[in-house]
Design a protein around this nucleic acid. Structure first.
Lengths: 141, 141
DNA sequence: GCTAATTTGCACCGGTTATGCAAATTTCCT
DNA sequence: AGGAAATTTGCATAACCGGTGCAAATTAGC
């Protein structure tokens, strides 16, 4: 994502542009990796944790971000791809990569999930694939 | 797994067979689905939660069980397949299926994960694939 | 500008994951 | 079998994450 008009981004997902939401979105855009609630709280000064929490929930409900469980225990959030529409169920069917060295979690949208053959009588609705390892930055010393 | 000699199972993974560990293992064997710490605590009477917690951690360290993050917030544990050796890194490269109706999480070992093509310079060490949906039992009304 | 709706900030709760430490148990050795 | 050393257990206690209720502040609609 580049050259952001933050208000425009919020409006596209039908989110009222309050001061808090603009600050949180600005923080999300600046960061490449997925962020946790604690990350945002530390990154922005003079903010209430609960308000940030609800802001991220609002972003998620309006499909501006998607939540990621990367195994660290804390839910992380990353901006959705442009294709995510505010009214359709969004699918983040890409890999979420957690680097055990720098502890950052990143979306790998280029890696598409292969179709799965589930056993008889199982119905899949959602899926998530998390990979643990060493990311490209940490591999380049 | 069938006709268990519990002591033998523990010994194979180099775990001292204390009374507590035998009880927890017995409970794990009896259950088909993955169990949470709270499940074990409720299933066994007169047990200390912390002790069960540490017992499961010990089982995990010795590769008797593997832990699963199914999105419910609580870590669940399931017995490892026989191939898991106590000294090698264990791979639970099967699907973990969480049924949103009966709320049970099961391992689907028959469904092998296809090899992934990660982007340049990413090194994968572990991965987990969780699928949410309706399981076979709940689909059969 | 004024009213209604939404959003924010504070207090507070609950569940899960953890740690420290003394008592109990198990292991090991003779 | 007995007794010391190592491990394991149980209790107290705490950190952390996610969440709700409610009144004050802010925003939106007219």
């Amino acid at each position: 994502m580049q050259t952001h008009n933050l208000e425009r981004t919020l409006a596209a997902k039908r989110i009222s542009p309050t001061a808090m939401r603009l600050r949180v979105l600005e923080y999300l855009v600046a960061r490449e990796a997925a962020v946790s609630l604690a990350d945002v709280e530390k990154g922005l000064s003079h903010t209430d944790r609960i308000t940030v929490y609800r802001t991220l929930k609002t972003f998620e409900e309006h499909h501006l971000v998607h939540s990621i469980e990367d195994g660290t225990g804390a839910t992380k959030y990353a901006l959705c791809a442009e294709e995510c529409r505010p009214d359709t169920p969004h699918h983040d069917l890409h890999i979420h990569f957690h680097c055990r060295q720098c502890d950052e979690t990143t979306c790998l949208p280029s890696t598409v999930l292969p179709a799965l053959q589930l056993p008889e009588a199982y119905t899949a609705e959602e899926m998530s694939l998390t990979v643990q390892g060493i990311c490209n930055k940490c591999n380049h010393h």
